[in-house]
Design a binder for these strands. Structure first.
Lengths: 250, 250
DNA sequence: CCAAAAGTGTTCATTCTACACCCATGG
DNA sequence: CCATGGGTGTAGAATGAACACTTTTGG
């Protein structure tokens, strides 16, 4: 399998460069841990992000991403779900890790490491008004985002970049739409996320050729033009493509 | 920019669901933090990973990824560089975060959060023999990897998946090769990472059309067949493609 | 001259791109 | 019957896949 390649000493060095039994144990267990969530939503052809106005120090009154300290016995992923549940009242939301932020001085209260998560939700379906934090929760257009507390600007930018990557290689964009939607809606969503324009005919061909959508026996109602056919996704195919990936280039 | 959408109470709730001034401050600052590195190398058409044999409890004697606890005043990225410097003697290696692992019971010594990093190095150039850990450091074929301590199996699998993704969208594979190499070497590298076979003619056309490589005025020496032209990458173009990405599908 | 791997060219099929055109609805 | 967006077809260009062929070295 693999052979020992060198053996110049019998020094029983251990994995830790500074063994934890030689310096005070507690010194290595004094980190704080938090989670910050970048929640993307889509409404009227615009990509939005959920921001809060901080009600406490530090950075009281400033804009920030929703986030919280992780409890001593809490799994990080659970923590992220809890934060979003508090905000939207909904559990089991789609969430995915982005990055870890560990600069020594990133939090004035001490050494706090934070993990970024991003989530995609259908604004119409999950209304943050209803949450306990109603006082300070807003959907903000991604193009008009104010400066944020801590290193949250960076966290938001990283999440946005990851979203833009994902949407071109996996069917993630769809979490943002209602369960029945027109093909044009999907196109506008892609245009909002990637900040591009696509040809209608070619966009449709591309999407439909993936066999990802199911054409419903139902059309739009009460529109002042020809009503569009509504679609839903094929859950099975959706997860298949999520696992194996695709390449969306137009 | 954004308007207040609802205001049913004047409850000055703050960002933290359980405010940190209402429960013992220290409780939130008792996490340990570590870094684990997945170091990929390439040698003789095989993708390798750098593993250690642990010399201390817990998991003494088991295979594991190289890793260490982060020091109280140390940046995470610095910590990752330090670990690799100890192993290889080289600083400033290419490294990138993969994921955070935060399960409550993932470390027997307490609540330790770990951040995965992956790195790509040219095996011929950076020899881990020379390091202080020589006793327990081995290059292991990725196909023949033993079971690892902690949740390191998971960390390795995630890193591998991320590498496979990266290599198809950014010129990341090149850190693994010597500064002068033949096109066939690059092809074998791709085949090793992605576990596929490519057509020689088409592979060359694809790679050369990216304008990423500079043809050197130099050929292989002492080979029992026609010597191949050697190439190096165009650093400028390399970083350009790294930033903007490409799509490698063959 | 042979083996072995480097390196190139060509054909055919497939996919992209751009753009023009027709369709269904409300007013 | 008009405005508005939904929905489709097609020609030409560009790209990709497969495979045969030529070249240059050492032995």
């Amino acid at each position: 399998m693999s052979k020992k390649q060198n053996s110049t000493s019998d020094d029983p060095r251990i994995q830790f460069a500074v063994p934890y039994y030689e310096i005070p144990y507690e010194k290595f267990f004094q980190f704080g841990l938090s989670v910050d969530c970048v929640v993307f939503g889509y409404h009227q052809k615009k990509l939005k992000v959920l921001l809060i106005k901080r009600g406490a120090k530090p950075f009281k009154g400033d804009w920030a991403l929703p986030g919280d300290l992780v409890y001593p016995e809490e799994d990080i992923a659970v923590s992220a779900q809890r934060i979003l549940k508090d905000l939207t009242g909904i559990s089991q939301l789609f969430m995915e890790q982005t990055k870890v932020y560990g600069k020594v001085d990133r939090h004035p209260a001490g050494r706090v490491i934070t993990t970024g998560y991003y989530s995609l939700i259908d604004i119409a379906k999950h209304d943050p008004h209803a949450s306990a934090w109603a006082d300070g929760v807003y959907w903000v257009d991604i193009e008009e985002c104010p400066a944020l507390a801590f290193d949250h600007d960076q966290i938001l930018q990283d999440a946005l970049q990851i979203l833009r990557n994902r949407v071109r290689h996996q069917p993630v964009g769809f979490e943002l739409l209602p369960s029945k939607f027109a093909l044009a809606d999907l196109q506008y969503l892609y245009e909002a996320i990637l900040n591009e324009k696509y040809d209608k005919a070619n966009f449709r061909k591309r999407i439909l050729s993936m066999n990802l959508l199911i054409s419903l026996q139902e059309n739009q109602k009460d529109v002042p033009h020809r009503p569009a056919r509504l679609y839903a996704f094929d859950q099975k195919r959706y997860h298949e493509l999520k696992a194996k990936g695709f390449s969306f280039e137009l």
